[in-house]
Simulated scan of single mutants.
Amino acid sequence: MNEIIKTKNLRKVYKMGDEKIIALNDVNLEIYKKEIVCIIGTSGSGKSTLLNMMAGLEKPTKGEIIVNNMHLEKMNEKQLTKFRQKNVGFVFQSYNLIPTLTALENVSLVLTFRGVPKRVREKKATEMLKNVGLGKRLHHKPSEMSGGQQQRVSIARAFVGNPKIVFADEPTGNLDTKTTFEIMDLVTSMVKDLNQTLVIVTHDDEISSYANRIFHMRDGKIEKVEELPLKGDVVN
């Protein structure tokens, strides 16, 4: 297996007045291509900060973040924006959909930023929405959809640009148990079909059961790494 994400002595310190809060404390990890990884821990353990670092959303205080052979810690904001557009997709707990846009517009917006022609991006967005079971909801706005349907739009948006890595931050935190498993089955089957890497942040043990490996975090450090029997196909 080839690594697609690697961190070396990754450290993040936030300053609040005279106080320093250590969110990440010399974190070293490797995540491999086509792997499904879960980062689990209680609130304040550093798991979301670690995801933000690997996704190029935050800069480290010190250390290295190497994603797809690129050093994120050396990039400026413009370079990081370009990196995210080309390499990653995001699924968030709160969906992060634009309320004034339809499902089709929310999904195709990702391709707009890449300069994809309108006809092409609408075709791709339509296909992706059909793939997540929303072929009849193309022109509905978020307020006209259930939480599960909004998360499916979020998933379609994450995958429409065919990213190498999908980052999911508490992707089922606002969903009931039945919808949670439907969403997780959908996301994991899509990353396997497309040979992508999935990194999930959660505090839910049931969600972590979908992973190949689990990184357990506490107080800004990786406490242990757990390998699981896989659900579905084995990653080679």
Rank of each mutant, 00 (worst) to 15 (best):
A23Y: 04
A211P: 12
L138C: 02
G133R: 09
L101P: 02
D176R: 04
S189T: 12
H203A: 05
R114S: 15
G232W: 08
K47G: 00
N96A: 13
A125I: 06
A55N: 10
S146D: 09
V107S: 07
L230N: 15
L138D: 03
M1Q: 11
H216Y: 14
V110K: 09
R11N: 13
V27F: 05
K12G: 10
K62L: 13
G161R: 11
N68E: 13
E30C: 07
K82G: 02
N52E: 01
V166Y: 04
P163H: 05
V160S: 03
T197C: 06
I155M: 08
K33D: 14
T61E: 10
I36Y: 02
I155Y: 10
N68Y: 10
A211Q: 08
V37C: 08
D205K: 14
V37D: 06
F90R: 08
V120T: 13
I98F: 14
G173T: 06
I39E: 00
T100W: 04
I66Y: 13
N106I: 05
G232V: 03
Q85D: 02
T180W: 04
L97D: 08
N236I: 06
L129Y: 03
L97T: 10
L230M: 14
V199W: 01
N9V: 09
S146R: 12
I155E: 07
I22E: 14
Q79V: 00
A103H: 09
N106Y: 07
L80V: 06
S108E: 14
N52K: 11
D169W: 00
S146T: 13
E227S: 13
K62P: 10
Q85Y: 06
G44D: 06
Y210H: 01
V160M: 01
E73H: 14
E122G: 03
K47R: 00
P99A: 04
N106S: 05
S143F: 10
L24K: 12
V201M: 03
V116C: 11
D26W: 04
T112G: 00
E127T: 11
N162Y: 12
K8W: 02
K6M: 09
M128G: 02
K12R: 14
K136N: 15
I200Y: 03
D204H: 01
P117V: 05
T100M: 09
A158H: 04
K74G: 00
S108W: 12
L101V: 02
V91G: 03
M75P: 10
E182C: 08
L228R: 10
Q196V: 00
R114F: 08
L230C: 13
F215L: 15
G115V: 06
A168N: 01
K47W: 05
G161D: 07
